[in-house]
């Protein structure tokens, strides 16, 4: 039926862009679902490294404080706690970013 209308008079630009948008929407949806598993692994790696890196930094700062202030082992204890807190905050922030990305359409 749409073909009949198309033969009689060329489709208007509005109609054409609507159809183009529909096709484009389909394509981006298909692409995002296909890339899903790979992206999930990338996200997992990202979250893990965020947590790990913050804990390493915290522990190193704590050990540094121990060495230069002579307060062993409390610097290490405090550093590990602060590092863990920073790691959790990193993870929370990363997750927020990811959700922001996906809701924007990517």
């Amino acid at each position: 039926m749409a073909d009949d209308a198309g033969k009689q008079n060329p489709p208007s630009l509005d109609e054409f862009s609507k159809r183009l948008d529909a096709v484009r929407g389909d394509k981006t949806n298909a692409e995002s679902s296909r890339a899903g598993s790979g992206q999930a692994m990338g996200r997992a790696f990202r979250v893990a490294s965020e947590l790990l890196a913050a804990m390493i930094v915290g522990v190193l700062l704590g050990l540094g404080a121990d060495k230069f202030l002579g307060i062993s082992p409390f610097g290490l204890l405090a550093g590990a706690l602060v590092g863990f807190a920073a790691g959790v905050m990193n993870v929370a922030r990363a997750m927020k970013n990811m959700h922001g990305d996906s809701s924007e359409g990517g």
Binding site: V57, L61, M89
Partner: peptide, 14 residues
């Protein structure tokens, strides 16, 4: 501020 500072330092490492 301390936690944010550690978080910032952890960025290049992560």
């Amino acid at each position: 501020v301390l936690i944010e500072f550690v978080s910032f330092l952890s960025r290049p490492l992560s």
